[in-house]
Design a protein around this nucleic acid. Structure first.
Length: 805
RNA sequence: GCCGGGAUGGCGAAACUGGUAGACGCAGGGGACUUAAAAUCCCCCGCUACGUCGUAGCGUGCCGGUUCGACUCCGGCUCCCGGCACCA
């Protein structure tokens, strides 16, 4: 009987389903382990081999942890709201719910073919009303906490398409679809006040077991900077222009001011003579996209005709308008210090403004603006102080004078939470006739998505929901007022912000989750996904989680204790897999040819989990061959076990190989070093293949080691060995120290650092003994001829080094 | 420009805290079995030179340093990938 995955695999998949093998109890004496994949968006393309890489990794860990005695929560669901289904609906008129259901079926069928040990009874979809009901509920919590508000903010408006686009849909100022121009247009939008949590989102990264690079991405995104806000009195008016600076120490060098073209005081500050040029400049920069502004070669700007007084030295300095200052950061106004700021220097050069150095550059400094450390100069009471000290002194002075205060700023902006879309969660609120907003009570949820005739945008910048008058306009049953609903829907991020919580209690109809279950399962012990979600998803989910924590609704401060990234599986040509590149590999085909077990193992064998790796069509054959070899260890021609598999005492060499393998596979699986765990198994199988005797005491642990990696084959072999039950909960083999220690070891002899000889020595030999052996070697003596040994280096079990001269 | 990550045979890769570079696999070569092929099993496989086993030299992107000894540590570069980008 030959190894036939196409027969074995569906049989075991059916077995697991029928026996509920992976159904997870919600309480248990066992320690818990929550291992979670970033759930997928079920696209119409189906899976390519890249998707299951991470899922295989988590599945190996889930299966391994079960065998180690953990109660494992390993669920899967669907992040199913989103644009592709909606765009498809616009083209074809098919309701996104239908497309979504169809895509989910395909994804699920494909995932099942891999034999992943998900508890499918916990499957959820963000688009299901019983799910988004609670997404809406969380929004009402945010609203009541004052963390959701409406504001006029610029959005990506595409006149040609008659719609607003998400940032992802805009490249180089053109729409992704059709390449039409996109402009910024202010519209009323719901915002979430994530900035209120900036400090905690930053500080709490410290305690997380995440890749340092991901933490860095989040730190940079949050962009904390310390400095001061200072008021500069406007000459000839009672007003004070407030600026933010991280370099208060350089204030004596502030030779002019700049305000952003969007600054509310632009009109007012422009004198009669300057009014026209200022207005023209403002119109000009409004027409520029963000991108144009950034790529401009030369810094532009115009003088307002008005002056400020520098509080540090009382000097009168001009106020300019320039678009290198952004309204969205700080106060939208700066003090320009060309001596210590490259941008200000550049601007000062172009517009002939004075430059004063207030930090002494080193003597060999040849550049323009000097941003490094050095003693303060031309700075009155700060002269001679280093940058840090001068900052501190100046900030204290500013506060003492009452002209400003210490201030911390963040790059992080509030989260634009509205989408002009159909296929998303409707906002659970009513805008009442009296101008107030009433968020819906839990028993009024879910606010269902209504049926629409067309999925096309309204053309006014509003989403398709705006066109359904009888849904938009309603009467509030509570207050009796006429009311209107929000025509925007929530972004796709919303549903993925809390799905890990719903998995602990996915069928609860009374509440979003049961507190006891949450306390039992949270936090997630291993969260695995791609780096593309390094910032947005992970930051948004952490934000919601902290709000829930503050409300006492979750018991942990952070949702994901341990995070790891999987790399990408690239096409054969080393490029990203995509339909347009024609290098997509379909797992259905690979499984048909080689089986799911071979594919799982190959995906893991390709290289380290977190690296990008190109697909190699020949490589899969190697893993198929390996599993074939495993099979032949157990079975030859017959329908049953080979006669060579016997209850005999194993020989020493087999036991050594086995225990070495147990130790290696265990350690490497724990560390997620799956590629080297697999090579450890290959070494064992190669060793056993060469032997005639197949002692059961060696083969059984061997099957268990393989089980997390190639579960179908392992189950089948386990059955052939006479076991009546699945091995999913069989105890993981333990390695025995006795078989790991060697009687003799190979020593290398280095002479002046170069390997000149290898020799066997007893494992417990001491330095003198090994050195004597080395010196006795003919080859070593040849290298020592006419020289003296000046020093000996001894590394137990490894090497003797002789330094001669 | 700034912040990450990477570079090791023909290819994917391994090497725990400085101590045998290339485990394991792919591709390639040779042999056994076979009428033959496939499959399987065994052996070889970094480069160069002399060459029979072998011996020596070189070799982990580049240049330099520390060390008896460096893929590993330090300084300076090059190229590739990802992220951010006039954030004051």
């Amino acid at each position: 009987m030959a190894y036939d995955p196409s027969a074995i695999e569906p049989r075991w998949q059916r077995y697991w389903d029928e026996h509920g093998t992976f159904r997870t109890p919600d309480s248990s004496d066992r320690p818990k382990y929550y291992v979670l994949d970033m759930f997928p968006y079920p696209s119409g393309q189906g899976l390519h081999v890249g998707h299951p890489e991470g899922y295989t990794a988590t599945d190996i860990l889930a299966r391994y942890k079960r065998m180690r005695g953990f109660n494992v929560l390993h669920p899967m669901g669907w992040d199913a709201f989103g644009l592709p289904a909606e765009n498809y609906a616009v083209r074809t008129g098919t309701h996104p719910a239908i497309t979504t259901r169809r895509n989910i079926e395909t994804f699920k069928r494909q995932l099942k073919m891999f034999g992943f040990s998900y508890d499918w009874e916990r499957e959820i979809a963000t688009t299901h009303p019983e799910y988004y009901r609670w997404t809406q509920w969380i929004f009402t919590l945010l609203y009541r906490q004052g963390l959701a508000y409406e504001a006029e903010v610029p959005v990506n408006w595409c006149p040609e398409l008659g719609t607003v686009l998400a940032n992802e849909e805009v490249t180089d100022g053109k729409s992704e679809i059709g390449g039409h121009p996109v402009i910024r247009k202010p519209m009323k939008q719901w915002m979430l006040r994530i900035t209120a949590y900036a400090e905690r989102l930053l500080a709490d990264l410290e305690g997380l077991d995440w890749p340092e690079s991901i933490k860095d991405l989040q730190r940079n995104w949050i962009g904390r900077s310390e400095g001061a806000e200072v008021d500069f009195p406007v000459v000839g008016s009672g007003r004070k222009l407030r600026i933010f600076t991280t370099r208060p120490d350089t204030m004596f060098g502030a030779t002019y001011m700049v305000i952003s073209p969007e600054h509310p005081w632009v009109d007012e500050l422009a004198t009669a003579g300057a009014r026209q040029s200022v207005a023209a400049y403002r119109a000009e920069s409004a027409a520029k996209s963000d991108r144009d502004r950034q790529t401009a070669k030369e810094k532009t700007g115009v003088f307002t005709g008005t002056y400020c007084r520098n509080p540090a030295n009382g000097q009168r300095i001009p106020i300019w308008v320039a678009d290198y200052v952004m309204m969205g950061y700080g106060t939208g106004a700066i003090m320009a210090v060309p001596g210590q700021d490259e941008r200000d220097w550049e601007f000062a050069e172009v517009h002939g403004l004075p430059i004063v150095r207030t930090v002494q550059p080193p003597t060999d400094f040849t550049g323009k603006a000097y941003v490094g450390d050095g003693p303060a100069i031309n700075s009155g009471f700060l002269d001679g102080l280093g940058v840090a000290e001068a900052k501190e002194r100046m900030t204290a002075w500013v506060e003492a004078q009452g002209v400003g205060e210490r201030k911390i700023n963040y790059k992080l902006r509030d989260w634009l939470f509205s989408r002009q879309r159909y296929w998303g969660e409707p906002f659970p609120l009513l805008k009442l006739a009296d101008g107030t907003v009433r968020v819906l009570e839990p028993d009024e949820l879910p606010l269902m998505l209504p049926q629409v005739d067309t999925y096309k945008p309204a053309g006014t910048g509003e989403g398709p929901l705006a066109t359904i008058a009888d849904w938009i306009h309603t009467t509030d049953p509570v207050t009796g007022q006429t009311a209107s609903r929000e025509s925007n829907t929530m972004p796709q991020w919303a549903g993925s912000c809390w799905y890990y919580l719903r998995f602990v209690d996915p069928r609860n109809r009374q509440r979003a989750w049961d507190p006891d279950r949450e306390r039992y399962w949270l936090p997630v012990d291993l969260y695995l996904g791609g780096t593309e979600h390094a910032v947005l998803h992970l930051l948004y989910a952490r934000f919601w989680h902290k709000v829930l924590y503050d409300l006492g609704l979750v018991s942990t401060n952070e949702p994901f204790q341990c995070l790891r990234n999987q790399g990408m599986i690239l096409g054969e040509n080393g490029e990203k897999m995509s339909k347009s590149r024609g290098n997509v590999v379909n797992p259905d085909d690979v499984i048909a040819d080689h089986g799911a077990d071979a594919l799982r193992m190959f995906l893991m064998f390709l290289g380290p989990l977190d690296r990008d790796k190109p697909w190699n069509p020949r490589g899969i054959e190697g893993l198929h061959r390996f599993l074939d070899r495993v099979w032949r260890l157990f079975c030859d021609e017959g329908e049953t076990l080979s006669a060579r598999v016997q209850d005999v005492a194993p020989d020493d060499a087999s036991l050594r190989a086995l225990h070495r393998c147990i130790a290696d596979v265990t350690e490497r699986t724990e560390k997620l070093n799956f590629n080297t765990a697999i090579s450890a198994m290959m070494i064992l199988v190669n060793e056993l293949t060469q032997r005639d005797a197949r002692p059961r005491a060696v083969l059984e642990p061997c099957v268990l080691l393989l089980a997390p990696y190639a579960p179908h084959l392992a189950e089948e072999l386990w059955r052939l060995l006479g076991h009546g039950e699945s091995l999913a909960y069989a105890p993981w083999p333990r390695s025995d120290e006795r078989y790991l220690v060697q009687a003799t070891v190979t020593y290398v002899v280095q002479i002046n650092g170069k390997v000149r000889e290898r020799l066997e020595a007893p494992a417990d030999a001491g330095e003198d003994e090994v050195r004597a052996l080395a010196l006795a070697s003919e080859r070593v003596q040849k290298w020592l001829e006419g020289k003296q040994v000046r020093k000996t280096v001894f590394v137990p079990g490894k090497l003797v080094g002789l330094v001669v001269g």
